[in-house]
């Protein structure tokens, strides 16, 4: 697992209060991990803070699973 992937998973475990085992690449924040719309906004903000990036709203809308978050960040974090 890449460094980015493990940091993303740690944030999700912390913020959503879920077990690490549930945080699979396919897992959807809302459908599988119990997040509501505010939780999702908070997750995006945490990713921005952790990785020092700005994720525009139109990009954020496309991040709804763990895998999408990891792949976005792997592409955009320098």
């Amino acid at each position: 697992m890449s460094d980015i992937a493990s940091r993303v998973k740690a944030i999700i475990v912390e913020k959503l209060g879920v077990d690490e085992a549930e945080v699979t690449p396919e897992a959807s924040f809302t459908n599988d991990l119990g997040a509501d719309s505010l939780d999702t906004v908070e997750l995006i903000m945490e990713f921005e803070k952790e990785f020092n990036v700005a994720i525009p709203d139109d990009q954020a809308e496309n991040i709804s699973t763990v895998g999408q978050a990891i792949s976005y960040l792997e592409t955009n974090v320098k």
Binding site: L38, D39, V41, E42, M45, E48, K49
Partner: peptide, 9 residues
């Protein structure tokens, strides 16, 4: 502005 979405509620 980086307010937490739970700030107001």
């Amino acid at each position: 502005p980086r307010f937490n979405p739970f700030f107001i509620p």
